[in-house]
């Protein structure tokens, strides 16, 4: 390194080496920092959400009421009630309907892309599906409000078209791209020798898909579905616009509901910072965090399960 027997070339080499000796570790540190920042942000956000509601959650929140009562009246003058059951029911009903649409549709598309088409058409289709994922959620909400709403009123003769059905359809379509891309990856990861074995025994393509590929890619496909669920639970603005904003446990898909996310988004701006209502919304945030964390963790463990096989 400390080669001093001059000569211009050697001088340059040693200078660039000296620079590299400084730059290399600096870049390494920068990259390390980026990696650790993810951990910092996740814990930081959880800490922020929890601590913003901590005082209320620890001291004044009736956990049983919070989890089991459908009555969410945070602004009542005489009797404030903080029950989230109706909101959880809203989230679950919309998510369930969304998955009933997104799972068959998404997995079907994944199978089609992975097994039944190739060449430029396949590539084009993949790009278009990714494009679907790029549509901003407020645009989806707009479609729910402006297009789905009158259609539902006409078709079902419903008093209002902003309801579980509307939100479910919108959310379902929003979850499709995730299910398609993860599902397609899972199918692509199935060794081709399985397909050949099945075809050579006289199976048709479709028999090969459901008798061999589905069991072989089972955990990956389940992970795809769960990530779709995670997406649906966390989505806010589109469901806020499409579900009609009524705090109630729905009896039919044509009832309006309000989801956990929509409640936070709609009410947070109206509350006094630090007040009970404000903190109760953060308690909802914690609940939501637990939901999505559980779903994502399950999906992650499943994906890991595939790799270890």
């Amino acid at each position: 390194m400390t080669d001093t027997t001059s000569g211009t070339d050697e001088g340059q080499v040693s200078t660039s080496r000296r620079i590299a000796a400084i730059v290399e570790p600096a870049i390494e540190w920068l990259i390390r920092l980026c990696g650790f920042s993810a951990i910092f942000f996740v814990f930081g956000i959880f800490f922020f959400v929890f601590s913003s509601g901590a005082d209320f959650i620890m001291n004044r929140l009736d956990v049983v009421e919070f989890m089991t009562s459908p009555e969410w009246y945070p602004t009542s003058v005489s009797n404030k009630r903080y029950g989230t059951l109706a909101l959880v029911a809203g989230t679950l009903s919309v998510t369930t309907l969304a998955m009933m649409i997104a799972v068959p549709f998404g997995l079907g598309t994944a199978v089609f892309i992975s097994e039944f088409c190739d060449g430029p058409f396949k590539e084009a289709l993949k790009i278009i599906v990714e494009f679907l994922a790029a549509i901003p959620s407020v645009v989806w909400g707009f479609i729910g409000l402006a297009i789905m709403n009158p259609v539902i009123i006409d078709v079902f003769n419903a008093p209002i078209g902003l309801n579980v059905l509307n939100g479910g359809v919108i959310l379902g379509l929003m979850s499709v791209p995730i299910i398609v891309s993860i599902g397609e990856d899972a199918l692509k990861a199935v060794p081709d020798t399985y397909r050949e074995a099945s075809l050579a025994l006289g199976a048709t393509k479709w028999q090969t898909v459901y008798k061999v590929l589905f069991p072989a890619a089972r955990s990956g496909l389940l992970a795809a579905v769960l990530l779709g669920v995670g997406r649906a639970i966390g989505e806010t603005i589109a469901v806020l616009m499409a579900t009609g904003h009524a705090v109630q446990i729905p009896n039919s898909p044509l009832d309006s509901v309000r989801t956990l996310t929509a409640t936070i988004a709609a009410e947070l701006g109206e509350t006094a910072q630090g007040g009970d209502h404000y903190q109760a919304l953060f308690a909802i945030g914690v609940l939501l965090f637990i939901f999505t964390f559980a779903v994502n963790l399950t999906a992650d463990l499943l994906v890991r399960g595939i790799k270890n096989k």
Binding site: P191, T193, Y194, E196, A197, S198, L199, A200, L201, G202, A203, T204, K211, V212, P215, A216
Partner: peptide, 21 residues
């Protein structure tokens, strides 16, 4: 009929490829 053909003509592959069932 390809299905019938592949019933009459079986194949064993280079790498053993039992199905994951």
């Amino acid at each position: 009929d390809l299905i019938e053909l592949r019933k009459r003509v079986g194949m064993v592959f280079q790498r053993p490829n039992p199905l994951p069932i």
